[in-house]
Simulated assay, not measured.
Amino acid sequence: MTETHVVVYCDMCGDVYTENTGESICFDSTQQAVDYIQARSAGVGWIYDGDRIWCDGCIAADHCDRMGHQYPDTWQTRKRLLGISTRLRTCMVCGIPEIEALS
C-alpha cells in the first residue's frame, strides 16, 4: 500500500510549515493544505496568494525590500573584546539588525 502526503514549504525560502511541535504537518491533499493555511493565516503569518505559499519571514523581508526597514530610534551599545564597541538596532518588521562600529 502506498500513501501520499502533502507537506507545506515556503516557495521563497523553502522553510517547512510547522506548528508548536516543530514537526511538519502531513495533509491528505494539496487542497487540504491550502485550505488549512488560508484558515490559519491570520494567526501564523503564512499566506497563500493563489500561486505561492509564503512564510512569515519571507513576507516580512518582502515588505522591507519594498518599503524599507523600520528601525527604532534608539540603539543598543555593546562593548566587544579588544575594546571595540558596536551599536545595533533591529528592524521591527523583519528582524534584520543594523550594526555600526564605534571608534
Rank of each mutant, 00 (worst) to 15 (best):
T4I: 01
H5G: 13
V7R: 13
V8I: 12
V8W: 11
Y9I: 15
Y9K: 14
C10I: 08
C10N: 14
D11L: 09
M12L: 15
D15Q: 13
V16T: 14
T18V: 12
T18D: 06
E19F: 05
N20C: 04
N20E: 01
T21V: 12
G22E: 09
E23Y: 10
I25M: 03
I25P: 13
C26R: 04
T30S: 09
Q31E: 09
Q31V: 12
Q32T: 09
A33F: 07
S41M: 05
A42H: 02
C55V: 15
D56P: 06
G57D: 10
I59H: 13
A61G: 14
H63Q: 08
R66F: 00
H69Q: 04
Y71R: 07
Y71V: 10
D73A: 06
W75Y: 04
Q76D: 02
Q76W: 01
T77M: 06
R78W: 00
L81G: 00
G83Y: 04
G83K: 05
I84C: 05
S85F: 00
T86K: 00
T86I: 01
R87C: 01
L88G: 00
V93T: 09
V93Q: 05
P97Y: 03
E98Q: 03
I99A: 05
I99M: 02
I99W: 02
E100T: 02
E100N: 05
A101M: 05
L102A: 11
L102G: 08
L102H: 10
